[in-house]
Structure formats: C-alpha cells, structure tokens
Nucleic acid binder design. Structure first.
Lengths: 192, 192
DNA sequence: TGGTGATTTCAGAAATTTCTGAAATCACAG
DNA sequence: CTGTGATTTCAGAAATTTCTGAAATCACCA
C-alpha cells in the first residue's frame, strides 16, 4: 500500500471497521480511499494504491455499487470507468441507512410477520410468539419514525438533530397550550 | 437442532442476521433462543437445543456478556448459571445502541480526531483532511443527538418516535411565535 | 472482421473465522 | 484434602470468506 500517511491511517481504519460490519476489509478500504480522493479513480489506480489484485477491486466495486455507495464518472476520450463517492455526507448517510434497512430490517420484519401469522402449537410457542410480537412492534415503531424523518430536507433534519431531547420541552409546551381539558389517552407528555 | 418450528425459524433467521453483522451465527442463534425462552436456560440446554458443542456455547455466552445482552440467573440449590435476556425490548435496544456506539463510532471518531490534528504534507492530504472533517462533523452531530435522546425515559422516547417528522411542524409553529417582530425569514437553526 | 485494452468471471489458493473435544480450572460439599 | 460436576481454555480441525491469476467477455475502433 502506497499512500500519504494521513490517508493510509484512514483507509486502514475503515478496513478494520468494514470487517466489523458485514462489509469486508477491502470493500471498506476502497470506499475510504474514494471518499478522500480529490478526483475519481479508476480500478487500476485503486488496485495500485491499495496493493490488491485488479480482480479483487472489480468485485469490491461491484459490491459498493450494489450498496449505491459509489458514483461512476467518465473522462472524455477515455473508456475506463472512474469512481467516486457523493460529495454530500448527509446523502451518504441516507444511502447507508436505506440500504441497511433494506438488508437487515425489512427481512427481519417479514420473518417476524410470517411467524406471527402462525398458530402456536404449544405453550412454548405461544410465549415465543408474544416475545416476537414485542420485537415486531418495536421495530415497526422505529421503521415508521425512520420513514417519516427521511423525507425531511437535510437542513430540517439537521435542525431536528441539533435540538435533540429539547423537542420534548416543546411538546410539553404544546400540550399545555393545545390539550386544554380533552386528552383522550393518558399521554406521557402532558403531566400538568 | 431440536426446537418448536416457530422458534426454529426465528433462531435460524437471527443466525443469518448475526453473520451479516459483526456477531457470528452461533451468537445470534443463542441470543434469539434466550430471547424467546419462557425461562432462563443453562449452557447445557442451549448446546442441546441448538445442536452445538458445549464449548462453543461457553465462548458465545461470554461474547454476549461482553455486549451486556444477557442476564445471569440462579436457581436455589443449583450451581449452574442460567441465562436470559432482559424483558424490556426498549432496554435491549438501548444496550445494543450503546455497545455499537462504543465499538464502532467512538473508535472512528478518535481516529478522525487524531488525523485532523496532523498537518497535511501535500495537496492530497489537505483535501483528504477536509473530507474527513466533514465526516467528523456529521458523526459528532449524530452522536450528540444520541447522547441527548438516550437520557429520555422510554415513554417519552416512544412519544417522540411516534411523532416523527411532525415535530418539525411544531418547530415551525414555535418559530412563528418566537420570532414575531424579529427576522422575517424563519431560520431553522436559531434556537436560543 | 480482427485487434486492443478495459473489465468481469471463476476455480482454486490463501487467509480468516468458527467450532470442537480433550484437558485444565474452578467451586464447593463431604 | 478429595471427589464431583460445572465451566473455561485452547490447539488444531472444519468451515467459510476473501483473494488471485488466468481465461473469458465486452466495447469500441479501424
């Protein structure tokens, strides 16, 4: 591997991290390299910089493309493909979230739903179903929240983030104002 | 593997999922099994139900303990250890978040900070640092938000979730109220 | 059509991770 | 102490994942 020291530390760290996720080391390294490169790189350059085989690069790029994490660029009069990452880190975050949801959350939800449809044949199964029901409910709540906030423009999303828990203060205020007298359900956020 | 069919599907799915995360198949399966079991299980029973070796169970339980994901129980007059998961799925979620942060986010932040301290020795390094700076900022924002909302009681957290993007409506309302007479253009980032 | 270079595929090699059984350790009761 | 059973450790076996080089494919040009 033949890279400026700063870049090298970053790339190596992402390699490590990659293997701690589902992604493998090489994929992580390639991504990191593309992320910090001032200009798009072609496969050959990547193989060169990271000291890995050309074919490995090809397979790993394919993986990254499946994740929608890289962009393809072309230079005039050059038929090689060049690769980058999107500039906007928020966009990268969104993509990551979306893809992980697709691969991890959605299949889990569907397995849970399927199991919950079935009729338990024993006491053990009945209890198991209850537990899975709890898990299912939780995941659905999280998913709904995600589907909801992912619609927000980045600027609003950032505002929301920076407010953090302080929004609950707002909620209390709102409850005081809005729900004079007629709250249907005992709502945790309106201790008056 | 000798389990009621519903439980078996669940356990197998979590095994798959486990390997898609950093956790390995067996660890995922054990966790799933404990999660749905009506009563705590001892290592022997786990090995038995999943058809894996006793020593494998021992190592995997140790891994789960390192993640704070299992609880140890004891029966009177029995010196074996029995294992369960917490009842409260929200608590499980919190633990998971905390541990993943500890293992994935914190080290990344610290690598980034370290790199950002250094003085770039070339144009390429200068650009790389800029990019890493963007990433660092984003991760910090997310982390702060997390540190903030994780303090909330579960009930409040749930309320917040269920509101989702609707809180931005509140924010707008608040902006209208607060900024009466001040700047015309409501700036989303002007919390006092 | 054949030539050129870029890219992908894929079978097997290499590396890594996971799993096991045997031995070691531990905790406690007699 | 000594015996008993539970638990952990760990070296090597087994399984899985990752990586490579050679061959195949592709896209374009003349």
């Amino acid at each position: 591997m033949n890279l400026p020291p700063l870049v090298q530390s970053f790339v190596l760290h992402f390699g490590e991290m990659g293997s701690r996720w589902g992604i493998n080391r090489t994929v992580g390294q390639i991504y990191a390299l593309l992320f910090v490169s001032p200009a798009p790189l072609c496969a050959e350059e990547i193989a060169e910089s990271l000291g890995i085989s050309r074919s490995n690069v090809s397979m790993s790029l394919r993986e990254l493309q499946a994740w929608n994490l890289v962009l393809l660029k072309h230079k005039p009069d050059d038929r090689r493909d060049f690769f980058t990452t999107p500039d906007d880190v928020w966009l990268i975050l969104r993509t990551l979230a979306e893809e992980r949801k697709k691969r991890e959350v959605d299949p889990t939800l569907s397995v849970l739903r399927e199991i919950l449809m079935q009729r338990p044949a024993s006491e053990a199964e009945r209890h198991a179903q209850l537990r899975m029901g709890e898990m299912h409910t939780l995941i659905e709540q999280l998913t709904h929240w995600y589907e909801d906030v992912k619609q927000l423009e980045t600027e609003r999303l950032a505002t929301l983030l920076s407010l953090g828990a302080k929004v609950t203060k707002l909620l209390e205020a709102k409850d005081r104002v809005v729900s004079l007298g007629r709250s249907r359900r005992p709502n945790p956020a309106n201790k008056s």
